[in-house]
Design a protein around this nucleic acid. Structure first.
Lengths: 245, 245
DNA sequence: TAGTTCGACTGGTATAGACAACTAGTTATA
DNA sequence: TATAACTAGTTGTCTATACCAGTCGAACTA
């Protein structure tokens, strides 16, 4: 009797039994990272159940981050996490280098827009004021790791343009504008990838992601920027070191 | 023409159109927190589509944290987040009080077990060594907020028992055992609620959660405890304040 | 009155099948 | 040879239906 046999008359749902069977094979190392698992139709036939039931099991495992689906190709075992330290104002670039990965960044979008709601209040400007907004993807070894959207008050960083953003923003702010960066606050929450994010990051819609909002402030207390980052939950964890206060 | 009308011949999937329609009604405030939304059968009839298609839309919104389902009762608009500060070694209790909520804690389980893998290496003890393991639920105003599992090396905290755990563990460690707590490291990652966790926390299986592992160390460098917490993603976000290094 | 049963509602599980959309390799064609 | 068409595989979307399992209140019963 095979241990991963399913029992149609068990009180446990069939889709759940299949979930556990697949999860077990992954944890036992029978299915390796990146490997393609049997197709939905194959499972349906093998266990003599409906393909929709198999889909339910696989959908759950995709949502749990165990598997990823690729239309027309198949379903694959997902990657494990790598770790990112979050101590002080560390940068993605430094973190990736310390890990032996080659970091890069790609500007997706740069535009002027009107501040609204959270963005306006976060930057301490009236709703409707002009903000500079740009979106970047951070990559490590060419693999997309995070999607970053930055908002800056256009009034505060006059003269900023697309080229500068692709260079060193903080250097420009401190040396050219004579502003002094003081501290930052980060908000961290667990979320799930939405449509656009999942496409850009190459993960499944609904995958767990870390949503981080960073507010950076100047020494005079004025907010400088608001950065919202979406980090892939399948690739990252953050660590925080704390001394007892 | 109603704006939330769905179009069967649109290139966008029907389930997606329904998702957006429901999400829109929530964001516009037409559906309030905790309110019950129309039943799956009602949607199916209203839009003249299959109930399974409606289910697919609602399942996605449940996974995205917009809705929660209760068998036999209905589907409800989920709650928004509240915020938790994570500065230094803050405690859940203090955080909740500062927020005007009444914190409490419930011991679910207390037992001796054998350290394995991550637990053993995290506590710096050999695999198979005895550890004290206990599980607690943290509540705010009687609502379960987090599930905490703690591991302590049995060798290090001799004399510890269930009663002490329900009192002040750190006080016992420092005053009775003469050990001095130094610092802690936290790992934070986005995940999804598994079966047991979702039941205890009263959230849907697959909901986003924050998984936090805290390693506490003594001044002599020995690891004292390993605490794994699962925080509800629908109720929490964490904030980290950082001074520039 | 107190307790039980029943019915009508809710979401949960499962079926069998259909067609669309996408991928990749093979085969036929200009 | 290069291109186009075909084919067999994959996941994606959707249908129409069936029955199970909780919930809750109304109607019935002791």
């Amino acid at each position: 009797m095979k241990t991963d046999m399913i029992d149609k008359y068990s009180p446990l749902p069939i889709y759940y039994q299949i979930e556990e069977a697949i999860k077990g094979r992954i944890e036992k190392g029978e299915l390796l990272e990146g490997e393609m698992i049997p197709s939905e139709r194959e499972y349906a036939e093998a266990y003599e159940i409906s393909r929709m039931t198999v889909r339910q099991a696989i959908t759950n495992l995709v949502n749990d981050g165990y598997l990823t689906r690729r239309k027309g190709k198949g379903t694959f075992v997902a990657n494990k996490k790598i770790e990112q330290k979050l101590v002080g104002l560390t940068s993605f670039t430094e973190d990736m280098k310390a890990r032996g990965l080659s970091p890069s960044i790609k500007l997706l979008d740069y535009k002027l827009s009107e501040a609204q709601g959270k963005t306006a209040s976060g930057l301490g400007i009236p709703s409707g004021a002009t903000v500079i907004e740009f979106q970047r993807v951070r990559l490590a070894d060419q693999i997309p790791m995070a999607l970053e959207t930055t908002f800056l008050s256009a009034d505060l960083v006059r003269g900023l343009n697309e080229k500068i953003v692709q260079g060193s923003l903080y250097q420009y702010v401190e040396e050219e504008l004579g502003l002094s960066i003081d501290y930052a606050t980060q908000e961290l929450e667990a979320s799930v990838a939405r449509e656009t994010e999942s496409e850009i990051l190459g993960i499944a819609k609904g995958s767990p992601v870390l949503l981080i909002r960073r507010y950076t402030y100047l020494t005079d207390g004025r907010p400088l920027e608001l950065v919202q980052s979406i980090y892939r939950g399948d690739r990252y964890k953050f660590t925080i070191d704390m001394q007892r206060g």
